[in-house]
Design a protein around this nucleic acid. Sequence first.
RNA 1: GGAGAGGUGGCAGAGUGGUCGAAUGCACCGGACUCGAAAUCCGGCAUACCGGUCUCCGGUAUCGUGGGUUCGAAUCCCACCCUCUCCGCCA
Length: 423
Amino acid sequence: MLDIQQLRKDLAGVVAGLGRRGVAFEEATFRALEDERKVLQTRTEELQAKRNSLSKQIGIMKGKGEDTAGVMAEVGSLGDELKSNEVALGELQTKLNAFLRGIPNLPRSEVPSGKSADENVEVRRRGQPRQFEFAPRDHVDLGEALGGLDFETASKLSGARFSVLRGQLARLHRAIAQFMLDTHTTQHGYTEVYVPYMVSGESADGVSSLSKFKEDLFKIDGRDLYLIPTAEYPVTNFVRDAILKNEELPLKFACHSPCFRSEAGSYGKDTRGMIRQHQFDKVEIVQIVHPEKSAEAHEELTAHAEAILKALELPYRTMLLCTGDMGFSSAKTYDLEVWLPAQNTYREISSCSNFEAFQARRMMARFKNAAGKTELVHTLNGSGLAVGRTLVAILENYQQADGSIAIPTALQSYMGGLKSLTA
RNA sequence: GGAGAGGUGGCAGAGUGGUCGAAUGCACCGGACUCGAAAUCCGGCAUACCGGUCUCCGGUAUCGUGGGUUCGAAUCCCACCCUCUCCGCCA
């Protein structure tokens, strides 16, 4: 949620910022709501103040045993107008609030303008895509040949966009998650957390706009609970309605969880394999920081995600997303894209975002600054990394001519010393 | 699932219709005393929103949430949510 003060003070700036995202700010709607709000709120509070002082007076008079009929008649005459003003103000504030919560975050100035992923900017590239002396196979072929990847059974159980892993491949999947979690907790200073995989609508609306993105989530029938599309949902909400102490910041959490996404609107995209599933595992890293530190923390957090790709010796590139490709709540996002030889391209494996105060304002996450004033925190998160896609990347990048898969050195200890996967 | 108890400020805990945003204690922040510290004493200490002559002043709202009664609700009524205890069930 944007700061309503900023909308009042610098509407032109907000309109320009949103314009860069391709969002047309409804200026007339906002002005109309604000004007009406001002009139209603002033009048309502004026009437309330009058009622309060008269009622207080009645109390005092009754204490003295005086006759209160006159004052009671006076305060009674306020009744209808007060009531209707209160109701109207309540309705208006609900409307204004919904309007504000539906506006996406403003991009930081260094975020390039653009309409789609085509206009994202590559900021760095690490690792060399391997030269194959044979035609590289994709992860589906490789996994099925190993007997470890079974989409047929998955579809029997649950339909499309699910997978079943078996044997060494299932173990490798687990090893990847363990390795990531261990790296972040022991090397990067994150605290491991285990969280609910379902959250309330209020929690969902704290990190993004529930009303706008409801269709992307799986909802529990008849209950105000949603399966989490990322651990960001529960973890960032740790600080909802909290006022933290200055010295508690930064908070850094790492969380391994399954993620559930309906993938509505992605029909026909990535239908083959494990790239786009209704359920996948991810290790998420989250930081809650002092507002002055978020830009720095964003670079650091992105580096933490990159460290996993480096340790696994997977070639990748870091993309600065343009305004048109950024998520609703983000002020700036880096995507990490891993090289997939079978697709002969880089594919997203992590997304690291700085939300600045946008989420904090939605969920009232604050801290007491050095001067003792309450101030909104800044929130950040990133995938560190998507486990399923990492498995795909390992299968494809580490495949051998005979169909076996070399196991990255960093993961061998998690595989009981195993150096390769074979059928 | 059944029975009961309860939700008040950072925490503990008073308050059962009227100058109550709320006693008191602890914690915390100033200041005095001290070479320094402890102890003691003095003062301060919720959040959000609105308005203004905008490091301050005034107003409004907030005692789990939402409704209701009343001139007036932390206090009374209704619904819901959550927590705890006991019983049952259960990984």
